[in-house]
Simulated assay, not measured.
Amino acid sequence: MLICKFHIDMNKHLRNFISVILVAVMAFSGYKIATTLLDYKKAEDTYTEIQENYSPEAEEGFMESDLKNINPDYRLWLFVENTNINYPVVSYGNNDYYLYRDFLGQDSRSGTLFMDYRNNFEEDESTVIYGHNMKNKTMFNNLELFKEKDFWEKDSVIRIYRGNYEYIYKPFSIFVAEPSFNYVKVDFNGENDFNEYINTVKANSTFWNKDAAPKYKDKILTLSTCSYEFDDARTVLEAKLIKKIPIN
């Protein structure tokens, strides 16, 4: 009888212990979900306010000087047609600083779209811009849309606003990059290097627009975000500059 009672008491304590652990796990999971959602909401509010007040679509017009005053690291405004990609782009002395900081410099899982630290926009042959693939469909998540045939065939253009000019780019490739492929090049070592790069992009493309394919010395825009087909995969959208027009 004593042995049976001992086992009953042990089972009871074990059940109570497991119940406490489960409650703790659920509480922690709930906390993590809540903090993530709050972080998403904060980021959305921050960028919505910036878009409404300072973007090229703002009621008072494009306020680039105000964006520079808010954040001296501001470099340009990026807009991708038929998506929700409509954000300021920054640049810093490395490619880590803005991974988890918003445009105001606050901690944020969403981060900020940022240009490769090696880039000089006017001079480089390829401008590379990075952004997170957020689960709430913000930042560079909508690059995933270009993997869909119907969307690709919409021929969406990409617009960059910088200084007194609007730069219009035409996508020529969407692909998933292997870790071994160095697609984040800002310049090329001659025509052969350029052609080798473009041929590798073409060979790996999900979709390819031969009419927009660049030739040597054309300006290229590379938009990069995380992808989940395999470890360290990246979704990459490549576009060619087709027009530079003054902003009225």
Rank of each mutant, 00 (worst) to 15 (best):
L2D: 07
I3K: 07
C4E: 11
K5S: 15
K5L: 11
K5F: 15
F6I: 13
F6N: 12
F6S: 11
N11L: 11
K12V: 04
R15W: 09
R15S: 09
N16F: 13
F17C: 14
L22Q: 10
V25A: 10
F28N: 06
S29G: 07
K32H: 15
I33M: 10
A43W: 13
E44R: 13
T46V: 08
T48D: 13
E49H: 07
E49V: 03
I50D: 09
N53C: 02
E57W: 01
E57M: 07
F62Y: 15
M63A: 06
E64F: 01
D66E: 06
N71D: 15
P72C: 11
P72K: 10
D73A: 07
Y74F: 15
W77A: 06
W77M: 00
W77N: 06
L78P: 06
F79E: 14
V80P: 09
V80D: 14
N84S: 08
P88H: 10
N95V: 01
D96R: 10
D96I: 04
Y97G: 00
Y97H: 11
Y98D: 12
L99S: 14
Y100S: 10
R101C: 05
D102Q: 13
D102F: 08
F103P: 04
F103Q: 09
G105T: 01
D107V: 00
D107Y: 14
G111Q: 04
F114Q: 09
Y117H: 13
F121P: 07
D124F: 05
S126R: 04
V128T: 00
V128Y: 09
V128S: 03
I129C: 12
N133I: 02
K135P: 13
K135G: 08
K137S: 04
F140A: 09
N141M: 13
F146Y: 14
D150T: 05
D150A: 14
F151P: 07
F151T: 03
W152S: 07
E153V: 00
D155W: 12
I158W: 13
I160Q: 14
I160T: 01
Y161I: 01
G163A: 05
N164D: 13
Y165L: 04
Y165K: 08
E166T: 00
I168G: 02
I168Y: 08
Y169N: 13
K170V: 06
A177L: 00
A177S: 10
P179A: 04
V184M: 11
K185V: 05
V186F: 14
V186N: 14
D187P: 04
N189A: 02
N189S: 02
D193T: 09
F194I: 03
Y197K: 03
I198Q: 11
V201I: 07
T206C: 01
W208G: 05
W208N: 01
N209V: 00
D211W: 00
A213E: 15
D218P: 05
K219A: 12
K219C: 13
I220P: 03
T222A: 00
L223V: 01
S224N: 12
T225P: 03
S227T: 02
D231K: 07
D232W: 15
A233Q: 06
T235K: 07
V236E: 10
L241G: 10
I245G: 03
I245L: 04
I247P: 05
N248M: 03
